[in-house]
Design a protein around this nucleic acid. Structure first.
Lengths: 149, 149
DNA sequence: GTCAAAAAGTTTAAAGATGCAACCGATGAG
DNA sequence: CTCATCGGTTGCATCTTTAAACTTTTTGAC
């Protein structure tokens, strides 16, 4: 979609992820999809995005298997956009962004929406851990360059 | 930086976060900063970004308190860009993106870089949990619209 | 100390992306 | 049958990004 130097994303998983959902609108569309929005015009109204751009973004998100299109069930021939399995796997990314926003981008007394567990109403957050479950911070970690799996 | 309808990010923490680091280059710069890069020309070489854009992005990242500028220690008058406390708090976002990339954007046998705990070499990952530590998935959660803190 | 090269930008013109409004064909409501 | 709505597409004006040239300090080599 956007023409860029692709050598950046050769080996780095974060860069490849950004290649897929790194432009301004894509993640907002995904956020709305997590909120249950499925229709073209609902995305459009909610985001205030230009229609041609929304159309292009939805197309590339479908191409990249983040969303899938299906005809709406009840009789009609209209379509709806839903997150694929892969799209739903962006959930931690959304939670991480939300958490960052909550911590740093709101005045203490400012109104905001909150993400909670549906059954208990408890706040949802996230932790970075090693594979055996111990929490780690940025400074405890290092990136191994280009290793075989 | 980019002119957008700002009513999108009125109350949603994810949208505000995207407002700050949601454009293509900013998160890549932050990723490099996590990798220890501090100098203008190192960012430029590593990313292949146009210099004027890098200059603009660094400036806005500094304005938004993600990065800070300081003169380089050893005698010189050159500057270096470092993550602030707030910038380091983007770590979970980077890990989430990296994890998504690793799971979905590489062929099984393809070479890639990996994020590990420095002291043990164990893989680093992340979990979405409730405040009391139980893991939850996207479908277990719901967003409460605009609530007072 | 001098000269050359690199660092860290700024400027400018062309190419590409985005936003806006108008238009269009297919449904669906009455 | 007629009209409004949905889900787009097309064309045009505007804004952004890029690439490449040009400054101005700062290093480094001799």
């Amino acid at each position: 979609m956007v023409k860029r130097k692709s050598y950046i994303s050769d080996y780095c998983p974060s860069a490849r992820a950004l290649d897929v959902i790194g432009d301004w609108w894509s993640l907002l569309i995904v956020r709305d999809a997590f909120d249950g929005i499925t229709r073209f015009s609902d995305f459009q109204k909610n985001l205030g995005i230009a229609r041609n751009i929304l159309s292009a973004r939805l197309r590339t998100l479908v191409d990249r298997r983040i969303l899938e299109v299906a005809p709406i069930a009840e009789g009609g021939a209209r379509q709806e956009y839903r997150l694929t399995r892969m799209g739903r796997d962006l959930f931690p990314v959304m939670v991480a962004l939300r958490h960052f926003g909550e911590c740093h981008l709101f005045a203490p007394d400012e109104k905001r929406s909150r993400l909670v567990e549906a059954s208990t109403g408890k706040a949802v957050t996230l932790v970075v851990t090693t594979e055996d479950g111990r929490p780690v911070g940025a400074s405890d970690t290092t990136v191994l360059k280009v290793s075989e799996d």
